[in-house]
Amino acid sequence: MKVTLKVNGRLRTADVEPRKTLLDTLREDFLLTGSHAGCEHGVCGACTVLIDGEPSRACLMFAVQADGYEITTIEGLAPAPGELSVVQDAFCETHGLQCGYCTPGMILSAHALLEHNDAPTREDIVEAISGNICRCTGYGQIVEAVEFAAERLRKTNAPRNVTGGSDDEPSIDPAAEAGAREGGVLEAAATRQGGRQ
């Protein structure tokens, strides 16, 4: 079946069997290999993507079901090649990862949390990432990363509806293209604090 999906702000088309998961389609048809297969039965969270901004298992959705949604993968989070979002940068600052395999899903879950809540408690963070299993870190530095990112987001004075970068800069953040979503704040903050990278 032919499907047209909106991934990271771009419409992409693939010809897939109905049984092909969104995860396999992202990886194989769109070459977005940042989403990882860990269990393929919905437990580990390595395949987490955002669907209309909400963390979801890409292994628990078929590509044929996924049209019409805004799908965001880890590749859609960095404001520009070589430039990190605040959340991504915070994970680097606290070393909230080791092997990196669960990391894209973990960061997307953290990103979604911080879009709703920029002053999360430890419990909020633990709950938000509880569907993402990490075998390396024991979660300590991940929680620290999210706390650190939240702090930095609170400290930036960026209005909540302004995106970073000038108009002529390429943007691969769908939220930035949409122009009014909070994903743009991350980008703005990242640009402002780029020196830390």
Binding site: G34, I74, L84, Q88, C92, T103
Partner: peptide, 11 residues
């Protein structure tokens, strides 16, 4: 960490 947080690991 930089490549991993961007989903740019090469597994």
């Amino acid at each position: 960490d930089r490549r991993f947080v961007a989903g740019q690991g090469r597994y």
